[in-house]
Design a protein around this nucleic acid. Sequence first.
DNA 1: AAGAAACTTTGCACCTCATGCAAAGATTGT
DNA 2: ACAATCTTTGCATGAGGTGCAAAGTTTCTT
Lengths: 204, 204
Amino acid sequence: MGLRERKKQATRRALQDAAVRLTLERGLENVTVEEIAAEADVSTRTFFNYFATKEDALLGDLPKHPDEEVLRRFVEGGPTGDFVDDLITVLITFLVSTDDLATQRADMRARKELMEREPQLVPRMLARFHDVEMKLAAVVAERTGAPPEDERSLLVAAAAMAVMRHMIKRLRFSEGEETADVRASIRAAFRQLGEAYGPFAADG
Amino acid sequence: MGLRERKKQATRRALQDAAVRLTLERGLENVTVEEIAAEADVSTRTFFNYFATKEDALLGDLPKHPDEEVLRRFVEGGPTGDFVDDLITVLITFLVSTDDLATQRADMRARKELMEREPQLVPRMLARFHDVEMKLAAVVAERTGAPPEDERSLLVAAAAMAVMRHMIKRLRFSEGEETADVRASIRAAFRQLGEAYGPFAADG
DNA sequence: AAGAAACTTTGCACCTCATGCAAAGATTGT
DNA sequence: ACAATCTTTGCATGAGGTGCAAAGTTTCTT
């Protein structure tokens, strides 16, 4: 990666960090784009070269579209053959970025705190999830051989994303949390969903 | 209802209608609040007394929080005793406003067209659904005797709202559509959900 | 019916967000 | 070293959105 690219990454990071820090300090309403840019030592105009809106800087780059290789294997019926298990594998890749693990966890924690302190951001976050949901529906349809805009796939994906949102709320993103724990929690959530709406649903 | 209240309703309506009409005509980007206000024969400032944002005027007042009486019966375990059935009853009240049926259908159709033509509005709409989702989770928890912020209730509500979004996408909001049809469609969607994630889930 | 009280509309000043454009500055390749 | 390419920046501009106080309406009281 050349100098130009590295500088861009650094600027992007600096803007995100400044945005998060200032917002947690003073609240979203009391932070202007000008201040964020000043904090990151760039002009206001440059801020908008990186992010379309103030909120975009806060939400960062996650969740990103899942790894193409993982998607391909899912579409082909893998990696285990169990639908829910394989779905969870895909879902977990949403949580993973290119940064190192510690940075990722810190980012997630910060974002979680932001959601709690600035509820206006929740809808924005949901919008991101919506994009992922559409992608998910597409691969589910492909795996099951259904047409691209298949109703059932959309529904299955919507429910899966509901589980994801739910999980993210629960996770602590702390040191002790292992991938296996995350997987088990997601699985438990799917089980609850199946029990609530499944063929032998009791009340609740 | 006194004159003052009636005038307010009329102004609100006029603003919404103007917003929708102009947006469908020219696209959201090419319509300013000034123009919407002018079309409704009020000042720009008055527009903002009614709606916080341009988008709010487009999305109108739905979905509203469901009828309190219906909620009370749901919490008490009614009206039929079957969880999914009763849940559907609650969900259907989300679709119902105080306007007459023909107006309601026209509004829904217009909103649907808006979502298709202006995808930026979709996240905004989802945000509205999020509010309803929280309310729904609360009553589900209450019905099942769980604590207010119960994980399972949140999950069940999230899935239910996924089903709702899905339904709304499918509905045509035309003359022939009866409440019974709507109910049957929602029920079918829940069944698909249960099959996908339930105890005996096959692939897909 | 008259006037006070309460509410709504409006104009104005003001700030922030966001975009297009062109000039200046930095990086890369030859 | 020079040209090509990309990034940053300042400037102008438009639109969204809010607070405030004055003017205009509706409602309440007597």
